[in-house]
Design a protein around this nucleic acid. Structure first.
Lengths: 220, 220
DNA sequence: TTGCAGTTACCCCTTTCGGGTGGCAGCATT
DNA sequence: AATGCTGCCACCCGAAAGGGGTAACTGCAA
């Protein structure tokens, strides 16, 4: 049996070059070709055949997800692995729906990448552990049952959001109390509930979650 | 005269590998080393010397701009070229202020990159033509507010930035102390100096400034 | 009606922070 | 050699924050 034929689709020459030099180290890799766009990828597929395609997500023109969909439509036997930055990881679900066989973050270390390629070529799909959580989250949101499946993150009340906003903007409990005309103790009570709902145990952790989830913002 | 010694700082192994394979093709390149973080970069600078550093912009922990500032403070003779995605190109001005000698987009083609490295090593700075427009834009806007305040803001030491990064990510002093092998008291001392330099008086205020000024980032 | 969620407020107690002070090593300047 | 500066480390003490519980009042919905 011949070696694995790989096609790397990424608009950055550096990434293509890097992947090529990494993957060619493996002796079961027969060839590593590169395409700088989805368009070029399609053209190459009409000329040669590949076992697996490593596909970037963000690209000018047709993006990785759409490209995956189109490839799988015409060449269902070719494996497609999405290779992406962590920032793009929210698109896991879409890419799986589009028919991708794997989802790998770009900061994967070199040894693992070759293993993953082999895994996928042998008919097993792979999703980076860092992003599997997002998949489940997305599936549950997609199932949408209007009931209380906010097991992960309870909804903050208006008062709580208001106080959290002051916290994020660097105010102390006493200052917040004056700003909203409450006792400092009450502010603390609210904060305790906020921490519970966010699943944290300190002010700074709450700030991080609040900003990352977009619950509140800096008020300049 | 010996060849050019290059240090590549990027959190993605793929990019480091790609740059290495590209740059080592040139026969006037003596060595290409890699660091996966600003921290590792600093450590390597104490052991070896390099002519030029190719620095990624977005990195967990201390980002490329702050790292450039610190490097230039201690090793003003070492050239620093920011290597970044086009999306980050808005930070040209900041990186120039930080002392960088060049600004190159990651989709530069291989031949040009080596030429640029040579250009910069020979004491000429380089900015990718695609982003020069942004520089002028930034100069016009920056004339009033941001630049004037940046002069008042004292430069944080590496240790201070490191600790600030932990703080922003929700860690308590005791946890930070364990992470960096210090006593909790020492962490507190550093924090006090950080607060003084940032002009704040509490953890949450420091977090706000740090994030707004882009001194550190969330580590996911 | 009962029950629940939100809001407000207080208690006690422990842990964590933040400010002040001082010591020490390295490094460049004088 | 003496000087000053900076980064780094450490202790004391009062203030702030966090965790536990209790309890009252409101409005809204099952």
């Amino acid at each position: 049996m011949s070696g694995i034929r790989i096609l790397v689709v990424d608009d950055h020459a550096i990434v293509r070059e890097g992947l090529r030099s990494l993957l060619e180290l493996a002796d079961d890799v027969e060839a590593v070709a590169g395409a700088s766009s989805s368009k070029e990828c399609f053209e190459m597929l009409t000329k040669d055949t590949y076992d697996i395609i490593l596909m970037d997500l963000k690209m000018p023109g047709i993006d990785g997800i759409e490209a995956t969909r189109l490839i799988k439509k015409t060449y269902p036997h070719i494996k497609v692995v999405i290779l992406t930055n962590y920032d793009d990881a929210e698109y896991v679900l879409e890419s799986i729906k589009a028919g991708s066989d794997g989802y790998v973050l770009k900061d994967v270390n070199k040894g693992d990448l070759i293993k993953i390629v082999r895994t996928v070529v042998h008919n097993q799909s792979f999703i980076a552990p860092e992003v599997t959580g997002k998949v489940f989250l997305g599936l549950k949101e997609g199932a949408k049952t209007s009931s209380s499946q906010d097991h992960f993150r309870a909804i903050l009340s208006y008062r709580e959001l208001e106080i959290l906003s002051f916290v994020v903007n660097g105010m102390a409990n006493k200052e917040i109390a004056e700003a909203v005309c409450l006792s400092a103790d009450t502010v603390k009570t609210h904060l305790k509930k906020i921490y519970k709902k966010l699943g944290v145990s300190s002010r700074s952790q709450a700030i991080k979650i609040a900003l990352q989830e977009g619950l509140v913002h800096f008020s300049r």
